[in-house]
Structure formats: structure tokens, C-alpha cells
Measured scan of single mutants.
Amino acid sequence: NQESVVAAVLIPINTALTVGMMTTRVVSPTGIPAEDIPRLISMQVNQVVPMGTTLMPDMVKGYAP
């Protein structure tokens, strides 16, 4: 099972992602793959992401799977 990126904290809208904001977990449905965390650093979320929420591609500005 592939791990997906999950919010480790509440991430406010338009916040640039940092390593500490993200964790990984096997979830269903799957979100952004864990191995993409290095690509996500400094990208901004386009909505509020509650802690424990799986990051989906459409939540991150400029992210393309």
C-alpha cells in the first residue's frame, strides 16, 4: 500500500508547505504520494487543510501529478 501525504497540523489557506506540516499515512482514497514531499515544500495550499486531512493534488497550487 502506498503512503499518501497527510496534514500533520492545521494548514491555513495560502500557506507555503514545510516538512513539519506534512506526515504520511496509508489512506483511502490515496492522495499525493509520500515521495512527492520534496516537491511540495514551498508550494501553497489553496484551501484550509485540517489536521489529518489527506492532501489531494487539487489542494496544492501548481502541483501536477
Rank of each mutant, 00 (worst) to 15 (best):
I41P: 02
G62D: 15
G52Q: 06
V6E: 03
P65W: 02
L55R: 00
S4C: 03
G20R: 09
S4A: 03
V6Q: 05
P12V: 04
K61F: 10
T18E: 08
G31D: 01
Q2D: 13
P57E: 08
S42G: 12
I13W: 08
E3A: 06
P57W: 11
P33V: 12
M59I: 04
N1Q: 15
T30Y: 15
V9T: 15
V45Q: 01
D36L: 12
T30N: 15
T24W: 14
N14A: 11
V9E: 05
M56L: 07
P38W: 07
G62K: 05
G62I: 04
L17M: 14
R25N: 14
P38D: 15
D58V: 15
Q44P: 09
P50G: 07
V49T: 04
S42W: 12
I13N: 10
T54G: 02
N14R: 13
G62L: 08
G20N: 14
G52D: 09
A16M: 15
V45A: 08
G52P: 01
P57Y: 10
M43C: 04
M56V: 10
K61G: 08
N46G: 08
L55F: 15
T30Q: 13
T30P: 14
S28T: 14
I32K: 01
V49H: 01
K61D: 14
T15V: 14
Q44V: 09
M22W: 03
M56Y: 10
T23K: 12
M59R: 02
G52V: 02
G31M: 03
S42H: 14
S28G: 05
I32P: 00
M43G: 05
T53R: 08
M22V: 13
G20V: 08
A8G: 05
M51T: 15
N46I: 12
M43Q: 10
M43V: 10
I11M: 06
I32D: 00
A16K: 11
P38K: 08
Y63E: 03
K61V: 09
A7M: 03
P33M: 10
M51W: 07
V9Q: 12
E3Q: 07
R39C: 04
L55H: 00
P12G: 10
V27M: 13
T15P: 00
E35D: 08
E3M: 08
I13D: 13
I11V: 06
P33K: 09
N14L: 07
P29N: 05
T53C: 04
V60C: 02
T53F: 09
T23R: 08
P29S: 12
P29L: 15
V27G: 05
G52S: 13
V9N: 07
G31S: 03
P33W: 07
E35H: 06
V45L: 08
Q44Y: 10
T53A: 14
T18P: 00
P38C: 07
M51A: 13
V49D: 01
N1W: 03
K61T: 08
I37S: 06
K61W: 07
P12A: 13
G20Q: 11
K61I: 09
P50A: 13
T30G: 10
A8H: 14
D58R: 10
I41D: 03
V48K: 14
L40I: 14
T23H: 14
V60R: 00
Q47E: 13
L17G: 00
P29D: 14
S28R: 02
T54E: 02
I37L: 06
L40D: 00
G52Y: 06
V26D: 15
V27E: 05
L10F: 13
P57D: 06
V6D: 00
T54I: 06
I41S: 04
L55G: 00
V5D: 01
V60Q: 01
R25P: 01
V60P: 01
M21T: 03
T54M: 06
T15H: 14
R39N: 05
V19A: 14
I37Y: 12
P50K: 05
Q47T: 07
A64W: 06
N14H: 15
V45K: 01
T54Q: 04
T24S: 11
I11Y: 00
V6F: 02
P50E: 10
L55N: 01
E35P: 06
V45Y: 01
K61R: 10
G20M: 11
I41H: 04
T30A: 10
I13L: 13
D36N: 14
V60A: 01
S28V: 10
V49Q: 01
T54V: 10
V5E: 00
A16I: 14
N46F: 07
T18V: 06
T53P: 00
K61L: 08
M56N: 07
M21G: 02
Q2K: 12
I37G: 04
A8D: 10
A34W: 04
D58E: 14
N1T: 13
L17Q: 01
R39W: 07
N1L: 06
A7S: 14
K61N: 12
V48R: 09
Q2I: 14
N14C: 13
P57C: 11
A8I: 06
A7D: 01
T15M: 12
Q44N: 12
L17D: 01
D36P: 00
S28I: 07
I37A: 10
I32R: 00
T24K: 12
G31H: 02
A64C: 12
V6H: 03
V26T: 09
A7T: 07
I32E: 01
T18H: 11
M59A: 06
M59W: 04
T24I: 06
Q2N: 14
M21Y: 10
M22S: 01
V48F: 13
P57F: 11
T24E: 11
M43R: 13
T30K: 06
S28H: 09
R39A: 11
